[in-house]
Amino acid sequence: MSDVTIRQIADALGRDRSAISRRAKKEGWPYIEEKARGGARREYVFAQLPPSIQKALHGDVVASLVAESDALVADLVQVRQRIAALDAEIAAMLKLRGGDQ
């Protein structure tokens, strides 16, 4: 993980952005200002964030990956079911075709 925004940190901690911004300012978290639509946004250097913040962000990433993999597994199950249905249709067509000869 590289740089993170206040929004990502707030989401990971389940807190509002203003509280995280105040904490970042108070604790002097290093950041890089990036140009953004309507001004600039701060991106905080992940490796220099407090360990508790890093841990929460890792947990958030893991949870996202688990949810994403669950969705992919569900998609795979649907694809396999569709393939099985198509195989059955092909087998039925071949059987009919073989019966006509």
Score class of each variant (00 low, 15 high):
Met1Cys: 03
Met1Arg: 05
Asp3Ala: 04
Ile6Pro: 02
Gln8Leu: 06
Ala12Trp: 01
Leu13Lys: 02
Gly14Ser: 09
Arg15His: 05
Arg15Met: 04
Arg17Trp: 08
Ser18Asp: 13
Ile20Gln: 00
Ile20Asp: 00
Ile20Pro: 00
Arg22Gly: 08
Lys25Glu: 15
Trp29Tyr: 14
Pro30Asp: 02
Pro30Cys: 00
Pro30Met: 00
Ile32Met: 00
Ile32Gln: 08
Gly38Thr: 04
Gly38Ser: 06
Ala40Phe: 12
Ala40Tyr: 11
Arg41Leu: 10
Ala47Gly: 05
Leu49Phe: 02
Leu49Met: 03
Pro50Lys: 08
Pro51Ile: 06
Gln54His: 11
Gln54Leu: 09
Lys55Pro: 01
Leu57Gln: 05
His58Tyr: 13
His58Lys: 09
Gly59Thr: 07
Gly59Gln: 12
Val62Ser: 03
Ser64Met: 09
Leu65Asn: 07
Ser69Gln: 14
Ser69Arg: 11
Ala71Pro: 03
Ala71Asn: 10
Val73Thr: 13
Ala74Pro: 14
Ala74Arg: 14
Ala74Met: 08
Gln78Thr: 06
Arg80Trp: 03
Arg80Pro: 07
Arg82Tyr: 01
Ala84Phe: 07
Asp87Val: 10
Glu89Asn: 11
Ala91Leu: 08
Ala91Asp: 06
Ala92Ile: 05
Ala92His: 15
Ala92Tyr: 13
Met93Trp: 04
Leu94Arg: 14
Gly99Ser: 15
Gln101Tyr: 13
